[in-house]
Amino acid sequence: MLHSPYNVLFLCTGNSARSILAEGLLNGLGRVRFRAYSAGSAPRGEVHPLALATLQSYALPTDGYRSKSWDEFAAPGAPKMDFIITVCDHAAGETCPVWPGHPMTAHWGIPDPAAVEGDEDERRKAFHDTARALKRRIGLFARLPFERLDALSMQAELGGIGRMAGAA
């Protein structure tokens, strides 16, 4: 069906927390097999510091991340995406650009850790809970037998990962 490395774009509204975590986790877990990217429909302009601290706690790189528009990935010369995964409810309902190559899409809604109010420990916990849920889903995704799945089966698997009970 597809060939490795697979390009995966994680979308969220602000591209400051969930999509950044997903990008970092897949690049860390999927190393050779995947290239992950992230973007937002209305980027905040900065990456949330707790997103970077959470990636660091997983011993993943924290440099090079920036909050950017999804328009960058719909423009000529952008990497061709194989998969586009929304990780927040707002981005899932928005009208997305037309993606070159018609990649597979899925929605893996996760609560926004940046919206959690409270003390520093509560906010850190929210980011770690989000990362844990994303890591579980990304792990399932990375272990799919891509070479044996046809397009319909792959789409069903992607949707099933997003509907996992207790993943968020």
Rank of each mutant, 00 (worst) to 15 (best):
K68H: 09
A74K: 05
L52H: 03
S67P: 01
P61T: 15
I84K: 07
M104D: 09
W70D: 04
V47D: 03
G64S: 07
A92Q: 14
C88I: 08
R44K: 14
S67A: 15
F83E: 06
S57K: 04
P61I: 12
D82A: 13
W108I: 04
A42V: 12
R44D: 13
C88N: 09
H107R: 07
E72R: 12
H48A: 01
T62D: 06
D63F: 05
D71A: 14
M81C: 06
T54G: 02
P111M: 13
P49F: 03
S57W: 00
K68Q: 14
C96M: 13
E72M: 10
F73Y: 15
D112S: 03
S57N: 04
T95L: 12
G109H: 12
A74R: 05
L60G: 07
T95N: 13
E94K: 14
G64H: 06
G93P: 01
G93A: 11
A42Q: 14
A91M: 02
E94L: 14
H90V: 11
S69R: 09
S41H: 14
R44Q: 14
V98C: 07
Y65F: 15
P97E: 02
S41L: 15
P76A: 13
H90F: 08
P61A: 15
T54F: 01
M81A: 07
A74W: 01
A78T: 01
G40H: 05
H90A: 09
G40Q: 07
A53Q: 15
H90D: 12
P100W: 04
C96F: 08
C96D: 03
F83G: 02
P100G: 12
A51E: 02
H90M: 07
V98S: 10
L55E: 11
L52W: 05
M104R: 08
K80C: 04
L50W: 09
A74H: 05
T105Q: 08
A42C: 00
D63H: 09
A75K: 10
P103E: 06
Q56K: 15
S57M: 02
K68Y: 03
C96V: 02
L50A: 06
M104S: 04
G45E: 13
S57A: 15
V98M: 11
A75F: 01
A78W: 00
G77T: 09
V47F: 11
P100T: 11
P103W: 07
W108L: 10
T86Q: 09
V47S: 04
T95S: 11
I85K: 10
T86V: 14
S57T: 06
Y58D: 02
T54S: 00
G93S: 09
Q56N: 10
D63G: 06
Q56P: 00
D112C: 10
M81E: 00
A78F: 01
C88D: 15
E94W: 10
K68F: 08
D63V: 12
S69K: 06
T54K: 01
M81Y: 01
G109W: 10
P43W: 00
Q56T: 08
L55V: 09
P49A: 11
D112V: 11
G45D: 09
H48C: 00
D82T: 08
F83T: 02
K80L: 14
H107D: 13
E46I: 02
I85E: 07
V87I: 11
L50I: 07
W108N: 01
